[in-house]
Amino acid sequence: MSQIVKFQCPHCNAPVDVNPEDAVFNCNSCGQAFLADGTEFKNHYILDNKHNQNQIRDIVKGFIKKKGFMRGIKGYKITKLEPILMPFWVATSDAYTHYVGYKRYSETRTRTVGSGKNRRTVTESVTVYRPVDQEIREKRADVLLGRRGSSMYGYRKVKQILQSEFSRAVPFNHDRLMNTEKEFEYLSTEISLDAANQLAKTAVFDEHRSRAERACTKVFDCATQIAYTGTYFVHTPVWQIEYVFQDETYRIAILGSSGKIIAGEIPVTTRFRMTFLGITTLLFLGGGVGSYFLGADYIIPIIIGVVVAIMGFFTLKNVFKTVTVVD
């Protein structure tokens, strides 16, 4: 015989539509966080949202005006203004890595050999091996999105911002939340505290090793130790905005606590493409004229050619790209 269980919020008893694998879940009606076994979760923090809809609209306006300079973006319309509380784990730790290896590099040296008539200067290249035995010791705050396999617009950037911003987080307070952020959509985490620490460890491990590999030609040994100093669950207010310009949709993500643009898309207009096509042609012609007048040696037109080719590489990219991404 099968047994049927319905899910209820332990705080306000409201029936909820949850995924029971959620490691920390938030009740849709009261917002309180619980661990899967029903106990309240203590290290639950939140970054206060400090902006309302109108202020966010103003930020969007300013952003498009500033970044859309010279593109003739007029008559766009904001079609979606959705505040989301994104779930992040912040694992603070003391990490220590000891690595041993060597760095190989070459140096040129000049020395004088011979004597009398045979005295001359020789330039030669010397390969030098420098032993490396170093330590990395740091306090870290590793940020993880509390969702598996997720892609929310701008979340990668939020991870970086949170590393410094999370010190401003305050303990999660349900009552205050109801006043200022009731319009926010909560997202709970699917990753448990334990798994968050494990995944953070992997991140530290990978990063320290890649730093060791950058410092050495060959790493012989690299060992990392981590001591956790506290893992916090931080709800971060992010406004997801969509606006329509000439029937096409573009996205912007804004951090609600600071009003900072996390990431944004700006339309590429025909005027923008033509401007860059013009710049490309001018560079091309200008380089030709420059080579004609400055050419005195083979090296000068080659340098001008390479410089113009590199610049044109980017201006041509702007001619053909679909959208400008700012982050």
Partner: peptide
């Protein structure tokens, strides 16, 4: 005319620009 200086420049830039234009312009998928 000293055109060889311009020639060297045009050879480098012209070829790079052509290849870049074709690679970017002939994209058929997004």
């Amino acid at each position: 005319l000293g055109i060889n200086w311009v020639g060297i420049f045009a050879a480098i830039t012209g070829i790079v620009f052509t290849v870049r234009t074709l690679l970017l312009g002939l994209r058929t998928k997004y």
